[in-house]
């Protein structure tokens, strides 16, 4: 028996590079991203040098949303209301700024995050305590949040335009320090904090535990229901935060402005190797996934400038193909892995 184990470890050592790659799914992903970038750079000369900052800027809002989505996917849930929550949070914060109730950056973020967290809490509570499936709750929430935006008696607005915002707020998000805009710093900070949170805190580990085996987690004393609520609160709060970032970036918000964004957020997570069944997924993968989406996003208009009709079509195909490819690679890796273990 002992001999057996030592042989296995030896075997593992000899395949160390391969097993390292298998263990860290992010490495093949990084390869795909590199291939993607190289391909586009060849097709569109001067693409990368002129666009890398754009890619970063484009992916930052998506990344913040995807970090929240990661938490939710990890517990085996899903949230398709993020885009609607983003709009609602940005709309409420925008109205408060227009009416002169908030002047500061921190105030804006506090309102956005607060609104998002509240909705996340409602989502999570209904799921946990009403035992309703995530997709139904968040589908309903999408309707609710979108319907709340144009209602006169709640917000009294049709849209927020540049004129409604303070000078400082308008400049802040895209203000550059060391050649990098603030929006990218925010996204980076969120991603790093999320990574640390999931990896090194008790609650973070509980999220993984809940996702991979709920029953076992409960036995170990994890308050599963509250962990689920918490994951949704985080997701909602980050969606609200992304709403403020969006308001700072585009200086405008109206109902339906982020329509369909949820799809790209989920796609970024799935591309990043996050399992939709829960329990597996890393922030590094999500970052790479978000970068991939942003690359596809910025490359396609350059490739098909005069064929606008083709754009959405190819975007859909590319994302679908990338997701399926990822699954196939996964399977190949798993097969190898099993072979290595002599099963």
């Amino acid at each position: 028996m002992k001999r057996d184990i030592s042989e296995k470890t030896r075997q593992k050592d000899s395949f160390s590079l391969l097993s390292y790659v298998i263990e860290h799914r992010e490495i093949p992903l990084l390869g795909v991203l590199a291939v993607l970038l190289a391909g586009v750079s060849i097709a569109v000369p001067g693409y990368f040098t002129g666009n890398y900052m754009n890619i970063l800027k484009n992916c930052s809002m998506n990344l913040v949303l995807a970090s929240g989505m990661l938490c939710v996917l990890l517990i085996g849930s899903i949230d398709i209301s993020v885009a609607a929550v983003l709009e609602l949070a940005a709309a409420i914060a925008g109205v408060l700024m227009r009416d002169g109730k908030i002047h500061t950056m921190i105030g804006m973020f506090a309102v956005g995050i607060g609104v998002g967290a509240l909705i996340g809490f409602i989502n999570g509570s209904i799921m946990s305590f009403g035992r309703v499936l995530p997709i139904i709750v968040t589908l309903g929430m999408t309707y609710l949040a979108r319907a709340l935006i144009p209602m006169d008696f709640i917000l009294g607005m049709n849209k927020i335009a540049r004129i409604d915002l303070t000078e400082y707020f308008k400049e802040f998000i895209l203000h550059e320090y060391l050649g990098i805009p603030v929006i990218v710093y925010i996204a980076g900070a969120v991603a790093i904090l999320m990574g640390l949170f999931l990896r090194y805190t008790r609650v973070g580990r509980s999220i993984y535990a809940t996702g991979s085996n709920e029953e076992a987690a409960r036995m170990r004393g994890v308050k599963v229901k509250w962990i689920k609520v918490l994951a949704h609160v985080i997701c909602g709060a980050l969606a609200g935060m992304a709403g403020i970032m969006r308001l700072g970036y585009y200086n405008a918000i109206e109902k339906g402005a982020a329509n369909g964004q949820e799809m790209y957020v989920i796609a970024a997570c799935v591309l990043g190797g996050v399992s939709v069944m829960g329990g597996y997924g890393k922030i590094t993968g999500v970052v790479i996934g978000a970068l991939m989406i942003a690359t596809i996003d910025s490359a396609i208009p350059q490739l098909f400038m005069n064929a606008t009709m083709m754009k959405e079509f190819f975007k859909g195909i590319l994302i679908l193909a990338a997701i399926l490819l990822n699954v196939l690679m996964q399977r190949a890796a798993n097969k190898r892995n099993l072979k290595g273990r002599d099963i």
Partner: peptide, 26 residues
Amino acid sequence: FRELFPMIITLGTQLFYRGFCYLLLG
């Protein structure tokens, strides 16, 4: 592709079908 939920897959195929409509009709 059982690893992916039907939700994820149909979310993707939806884009594809809709894109096809635009290819046909402009």
